[in-house]
Structures are given as C-alpha cells and as structure tokens.
Nucleic acid binder design. Structure first.
Lengths: 199, 199
DNA sequence: AAATTTTTTGAACGCCGTTCAATATTTTGC
DNA sequence: GCAAAATATTGAACGGCGTTCAAAAAATTT
C-alpha cells in the first residue's frame, strides 16, 4: 500500500479545498478562517499546514477551481462558428453571468493578494491565461493585421476593460451601476469597443 | 477659549491622517498598523479611537485626500477648449500618470473594503463622483443624443473600463502588461473606444 | 485651591495565522 | 505477530493585530 498515505493526503487536501470554497462562497475571502475551515474539513488546526504551505496557498487552489469553472462557462456561452463581433458579445455576457452567479468566488479571484514579494506558483498563473486565450480567437478575426504579440496584449486590454466594468458595478461602492443594468451596459460597451477595434 | 480644544483635536486628526498617508504610501494598505501610525503621529494607541471611529474611517480620510489630488491632476491634464476625443485621451493619460506616480495611494482607493454591511459616509462618496464628472464633459459632446441619466451611466462605464485596464496592468499578478507599455496601450484603447462611441 | 469634568493613556482582551513539542499512527525489520 | 523506528496528527501556545476601558493626567469650574 504505497499509495495509501498519498491517498489520505489528497483526500485531506480535497476536503480542505471544499470547505474553503464553501466558506468563501458564504462569507467572502474575509470570512475564511483557519479554525473554521479545519473544523468543517474534520481535521485539526495544524493539519492545514501539513496539507498546504499556508492559507494563501489554499486560497490559490480554490481560485484555480473557480477559474476552471469560469473557463467552462465562457466556452459554453460562446459556441464556435459565429462571427467575431457576436463571439465578443457572447464572451462578455458569459463573463457577466458568471460573476453574477458566483459573486464571492469570482471576487476572490481578484481581491486576493499574496504578501509583498511572494508570487503565485506557475500552475496557478497558467489557469489565468485561459481567460485571455478565449478572447484571442475572435479578436484575431477582428484584427488580422496584428502579430501574435500585439494580439495577446490587446486581448489582455480588452479583458481588463470588460472586467473593470463588471468589477466596478459589482464591488465598487462609489461608482455604482445597478446590477440589473449590467448585462445591457456591458453589451453596449463591447459593441462600441469592437466597432472601434474593427479598424 | 472655546475653539482651543477643537483646534487640538483637529491637529491630532491631521497628524494621524498625515502619518497614515505616509504609511500607506510606503507599504500599502496592508502596511498600515494602528500602533505604528499612532507612534508616528506622536500620540497614544487609544488616541486614534478618540479622533476616528476606527482604522477604516482613518483610511477613508486618506482616500478622500488622494481623490482630491487625483481630481486636480485630471484637471491639469485636460485643458479646456480641446475636442472631445483629445479630452478623453488626455484624461486617460492623466489617470495613468497619476496611478504610476502614486501607486500605493491610488491602489488604496480601490482595494480598501469596509466590513460587510457598513457603507461609506456621504462626504466620502461625493469625493468619488468628481472622477465621473470629468468624463461627462467630453462624452456629452461625443454623444449629444444621450439624456443626462444615460450619459452618467455611460461615463461610469468608460471610467470603469479605463480603470480596469490600468488596475489590471498595475496590480494584477496574472494578466500583466509591462508598465512602460501602459500609456500606449491605454491610448490605443481609448482611441478605439471613442471611435466606437462616436456613434 | 479644591472639586469636578474632560481628555489621554497604555495594559488588557479577543481573534487571527502560524508553529512545534507531544501524542498517535503507520511502516519497517525480524 | 510484535517491537522498534519512522512518520503523521494534534491542539496548546506564540506573537501580532484592532479595539476597549479603567485608571491617570489635564483642564475647567466653583
């Protein structure tokens, strides 16, 4: 039984990620406490630190899981074979829909900060890249003149802009957009942007 | 000497805001500690809670000060009498410049969250409105067809989008834009957006 | 100048993430 | 199978945090 220990370990990790995810979904990142999450996972406080380096690393695992779901939602929202403008609009609506339906987990993706000087591991950074990759497809049709590097950069900018509109509407307490207006406002915004990007 | 007490009080508040501002500028919001800030202001730990309700309220004062400086920077970057497209471009560059030169204080404006359920006081919310007001001027020339309500909403969206691009480049650890490329990328983005917005 | 009110003080509280000596469990060697 | 060695789990304890509040100091009134 060489794999038995490893299996128990993985089982503990999974229980902790599940518990942490539930806790963030219920009370946001600030509601995630080491004592509560270990109690919910059915292990001792110290066990968390045998499974993960620290709480931040556990959060990264929850965030990677959220990113995978977000990626799936975007793919589902954006069927192949439509024009680039429709694809952009569909991706944006998919993003808005995911944010609305997974508010706290989605917010955790962007509000979580690692301590100064420490950066996320490679496997987690890669999970973020899929968001950009989805935009590159329609954008490359919209702007066939751009080389891959410029395309990548422009895709990052488009993502950042749409994310900015959604994030400000949902988490900004000052510059507020009513949530029911958000899909429409994002649609108008992406329309204007793709029109301006088209050439 | 009726005003003497009040004067001392205001002096203490000012010293605390100064110290907090310096501390945030040096180490970000996470670097602001009650014990350090009161030591720097030359008062006892408990004095902070006689001057402000809590640390959050002190942060709001620092943020309002930053907003006033940001507003001044935007006005300086955007001289009257130019066309709407140039004005939009100038405002965006002013915003980028301020964020680059006041990184941590600017980041504190958007990363600070009050505890769940508690909302900022009216005087602080108003300080945020000036950002939107600056955008409304050129936008109303670009889109004379929009009524004031729609204009306000569209201005919020434009601000959120530009802020999103700047914020993701500066604070996002995953979707990264090199800082030296940021002004150019924002310029291209705002160009595309105003082109698409023009009608 | 004594009595009263107001302000300032910093030790103490409760909660947090994290550590680590002690305990319990599993694996190894015979 | 069982004792010995290796490994994993435990939760009390630690240091640091924001915040409070009884006590001390200062200012005001009588």
């Amino acid at each position: 039984m060489a794999g038995l220990r490893e299996e128990k370990r993985d089982n503990l990790k999974m229980r902790l990620i599940d518990a942490a995810e539930a806790q963030i979904a219920a009370g946001g990142l600030a509601g995630l406490k080491a004592r509560e999450v270990t109690a919910a996972a059915g292990c001792a406080l110290g066990a968390l630190y045998t499974a993960f380096e620290d709480l931040d690393r556990l959060i990264l695992h929850v965030n990677s899981r959220t990113l995978a779901r977000l990626n799936a939602a975007l793919e589902a929202a954006c069927p192949a074979g439509q024009g680039p403008k429709q694809a952009m609009a569909a991706l944006a609506q998919g993003y808005v829909g995911f944010a609305l339906q997974n508010y706290r987990l989605w917010a955790a993706l962007f509000s979580h900060r690692l301590p100064a000087g420490i950066q996320a591991p490679e496997w987690h950074i890669k999970d973020h890249a899929v968001l950009i990759a989805q935009i590159i497809r329609p954008l490359s049709q919209l702007r066939p003149d751009l080389d891959p590097t410029a395309l990548q950069q422009r895709a990052r900018t488009v993502f950042s802009a749409v994310h900015g509109v959604v994030a400000m509407a949902m988490t900004g307490r000052y510059v507020t957009t009513p949530q029911e207006d958000l899909p429409g406002e994002v649609a108008a915004f992406v329309d204007a942007l793709t029109l301006g990007l088209a050439d």
